[in-house]
Design a binder for these strands. Sequence first.
DNA 1: AATGAATGAGAATTCATTCAT
DNA 2: AATGAATGAATTCTCATTCAT
Lengths: 199, 199, 199, 199
Amino acid sequence: MRSAKANRTYQKIIDASMRLFNKKGYYGTSISDIAQATHLTKGAIYFHFKNKDSLLKEILNEYERTFLDQLLGEVQDLRVGAMEKIKRMLRFTLNFPLRHRDLCLCLTILSAELYGSEPKYEQDLRRIYRKYHKFVAALIGEGKEEGSVREDIDPDLAALTIIDAHEGNLIQWMMNMKRFKGKDFAKSFMAFLLNAIRR
Amino acid sequence: MRSAKANRTYQKIIDASMRLFNKKGYYGTSISDIAQATHLTKGAIYFHFKNKDSLLKEILNEYERTFLDQLLGEVQDLRVGAMEKIKRMLRFTLNFPLRHRDLCLCLTILSAELYGSEPKYEQDLRRIYRKYHKFVAALIGEGKEEGSVREDIDPDLAALTIIDAHEGNLIQWMMNMKRFKGKDFAKSFMAFLLNAIRR
Amino acid sequence: MRSAKANRTYQKIIDASMRLFNKKGYYGTSISDIAQATHLTKGAIYFHFKNKDSLLKEILNEYERTFLDQLLGEVQDLRVGAMEKIKRMLRFTLNFPLRHRDLCLCLTILSAELYGSEPKYEQDLRRIYRKYHKFVAALIGEGKEEGSVREDIDPDLAALTIIDAHEGNLIQWMMNMKRFKGKDFAKSFMAFLLNAIRR
Amino acid sequence: MRSAKANRTYQKIIDASMRLFNKKGYYGTSISDIAQATHLTKGAIYFHFKNKDSLLKEILNEYERTFLDQLLGEVQDLRVGAMEKIKRMLRFTLNFPLRHRDLCLCLTILSAELYGSEPKYEQDLRRIYRKYHKFVAALIGEGKEEGSVREDIDPDLAALTIIDAHEGNLIQWMMNMKRFKGKDFAKSFMAFLLNAIRR
DNA sequence: AATGAATGAGAATTCATTCAT
DNA sequence: AATGAATGAATTCTCATTCAT
């Protein structure tokens, strides 16, 4: 059982790392950078994390816990129609970056930077995306059966497209942060997607 | 005026760099890697490129020339309706990665990896995206005037969404290359976007 | 506050650097050379010094502290005549290289090698020489007022000449180390200079 | 027999090299720098000079020819008293840098930078200085016999001191170029030296 | 007489990681 | 729980030199 102090330090390191990974990328961020940002020494960081990799994996885990598992928990077992679930899913997905900006950008950036680079990261990333994709595709499938989603939509490909769009959205949002407000962005985006699939 | 031999070597370096940046990211790729991949020495790379930065900038330039300028050239002055232009724009955009896979992925990866990291790249990236965005937004605007695009669509945000989606699409495509064919992906994606905006 | 161990290592690096700079010049000496000479790794050198430049600057500082400030401290406020001060100044100056051989040669070599090359060093070198020159010129001025120094001597130019002579002396001493003893050299040199200015 | 054009290029390279060695030192100057300064390619430089070493040696030779041999030729066989010869020697020596600034500084800088660094340069430098020293010492010896030079002067050490002073003088002159005029400098210096040895 | 492409060794510097304290 | 010193391998980049043309 870790002490409260240790826990605080641990989270401080995670938070600083996310911010730095967003700003400078994974390879662009050194342990020294993280040490400086947390007012700790490099040694201290190695006390809390086995190595740079494990820092990354913890961030991926945090994403899975706070985004994916949360999303599934909130939507999956609702006793409402499929289209309503889809709307809630989109709302959750689009609101998430507003509350967890760093975590969210971090995942997007890391997937672009690390995907393909080394199998050790690939596996984790793939697992997360598969889980996400499977869930979205299932919802769209339900929608088709229910008749609220257009017939010519392939659930697999549509799910992929929605996730893609959301990913790219984050990248563009990051690049245009000063020009558009997150709320407007999210609203326009949601309407856009609903138009696309709704019968 | 560069000699034919120099030109060949130059392009060989650019090509290998794109492939490597895609696979391992910009920071993850060393000049040594590029030297090995091209069967040249590190010194030879530095004969053709001032430094690693300029290698990157040349790739960005190449993207601007082969994708953006080409797209603008082909679509802008057509004597057809706005919706037809939008369709051609989407077709060009979606076909492009099939013919220029490395260049295209490279841009996506680099924008995610480098954006925000260092102002020197930011400027170039921003310039390219602005140009792209301005063009797409103008087309959608034309479509609204013409009456072929839904009235509740904001051209600026919709353009952004289309570009986003396309970006994210590439990331996902990269991660799912083995599961879906590029052609199917593109087709599904195009239908999706047209549904979203068409009146 | 640096630990005792760090201080020892720090000084070991400074000492080795001076010896190597004397033997091979600043540009001729690599960090690898210094690492080998100190039985440390290159990384360890960079732990103690930001870069090669700062190593150099520390040596210049050390010269200022151990030679110039010491000299000023010992001579400036003596309650004796100007000519006596001049003699003591010369004695101090001429004895200094016998006790601080490396430091002294190092300064001479670095000034010849680096002067004009890069403004970053120029500033420091100039500061040190100005301070030295100002002090010597003042002493000679006092001597003139006192009547013990020839009237046709211009303090500024004479000070410069004395400093020059001393500098050149070191270069030649270095080149003739085996032929002349430092003591004889210094003695002859002192007589020479006194003859030159004494009324 | 080299063509006129080749000779011109050759000299252009030598001149540029001297200027650059003065400004950035021997190790600080690259063949690329020289190529740029001469508007030639590196290859062209290697056509005229075997390597960087031989460039240096040619400069040392030029110094020996234009300074030393000239000085000996002008003074050695004069049918005048020793003190007069000494005066002429000093005048020649002190005027030389005014007419051959680059060559002169070059020698000083190279001796400081290279002496001790590598035997191959040491030899040449030592030869030149020995020849110079031998000549000056002989003159002072003659002066003593003639009775115009103080009895307590040791010719060997005095010669060394004069050469030293002149060397250091150049370094200081270089560092103070803007503050003192060469002419004044030389005059003050000559008076200084004559005072020192004259009976 | 000169160019331009390329080599290969070595330079400065960074950085993940270790470990005694 | 954390520090500070050190390692060693990798990285970007420079540079003297070569050689076919």
